[in-house]
């Protein structure tokens, strides 16, 4: 960045008030949201706000004046300005909320043409009809809802509600299209669609790999060495499973059909990776046993 004083058009002796006024005046001219089509606005505003960040902070300004720091300010990415979203599907509810009705311009145009005017030729345009625009929303569901499917209700700021069926097996990034739930059409034209993009939250225990569910499962020394029946969590609730004798950390067991079952597809499996876990509190009897256990020095590091 160049000289922040020059960028704001200030003398080096400018007061805090003068700095604020100068910034305000330039921000009103160059803020990207007040200049939606301008690429220069983004660059100019980056310089202006960086200069203001530096000079409005008394401590930073003093250090800059003493030459202790240089003028590289915090830069705000252009994607963080509203204008980046305003024209697209995510901005649609704000555009329609403003009550802007474009059909007055189009209606004039089309009705003029319908009265036997020139270029439209085939002219049967007595009335302007247009399909409504699509509206775009995001919806977050938790892991189990995405895995097993769920009904969610969205409430919109205008009081409208929409029931959304989230299919079993939905992944982050899936977009559900709800026909006719977008913006109303003009002059009797059909309504647009609602596009719902799904984000799936992570689960503390279950992870997903395709249609398989992965679980890391702690087991006790006894369960690993001697084997036995234990209860294992699955997305449909606890299930009884046999741990084979002689299992170890990293042993992978499979529960067939206990993964994710998307509609019309085959159900995946649940894979359980065992984690042999010692007791939390030190156990004197265990320590004594290990001290005296003849088999305690077995090779695990390939030395």
């Amino acid at each position: 960045m160049n000289d922040p004083y020059k960028i704001l058009g200030l003398a080096k002796t400018a007061s805090a008030d003068e700095i604020k006024k100068a910034y305000r005046k330039l921000a009103k001219q160059h803020h990207p949201d007040l200049n939606p089509g301008s690429a220069e606005a983004a660059t100019k505003f980056k310089d202006i706000s960086g200069a203001y960040d530096l000079l409005s902070d008394a401590d930073k300004r003093a250090r800059f004046d003493r030459g202790e720091i240089d003028a590289s300010g915090q830069e705000r990415a252009d994607s963080s300005f509203y204008r980046s979203y305003a024209g697209g599907p995510q901005g649609a509810r704000y555009r329609s909320n403003a009550g802007f009705d474009p059909s007055d311009i189009f209606a004039d145009m089309f009705s003029r043409a319908g009265q036997g005017g020139g270029g439209f030729g085939r002219g049967d345009f007595h009335e302007f009809r247009m399909r409504g625009g699509d509206l775009s929303y995001t919806l977050t569901v938790d892991f189990l809802e995405a895995a097993k499917g769920a009904q969610k209700r969205l409430s919109f700021p205008d009081g409208r509600t929409l029931d959304v069926n989230v299919p079993a097996g939905t992944v982050t990034g899936s977009v559900l299209r709800l026909r006719g739930q977008g913006q109303p059409g003009t002059g009797g034209g059909p309504a647009g669609d609602a596009l719902i993009e799904i984000t799936v939250e992570a689960h503390p225990l279950f992870r997903r790999d395709g249609n398989n569910v992965l679980v890391d499962l702690p087991v006790t020394l006894a369960e690993a060495v001697l084997g036995g029946k234990i209860n294992v969590p699955t997305i449909d609730g606890p299930v009884s499973m046999t741990v084979p004798a002689g299992s170890n950390t990293g042993t992978r067991l499979r529960l067939r059909g206990r993964g994710i079952a998307p509609k019309g597809g085959t159900a995946g499996d649940q894979y359980i990776t065992l984690k042999v876990t010692l007791p939390k509190e030190p156990d004197a009897a265990l320590s004594d046993f290990i001290k005296n256990w003849p088999g305690r020095e077995y090779d695990v590091r390939g030395s």
């Binding site: 300005f81 704000y94 409430s155 919109f156």
Partner: peptide
């Protein structure tokens, strides 16, 4: 947009 008891803010909302 409200989903159940949660308010959901997307990127456009946050930029706004």
């Amino acid at each position: 947009v409200r989903s159940g008891n949660n308010l959901a803010f997307d990127d456009a909302d946050r930029a706004r």
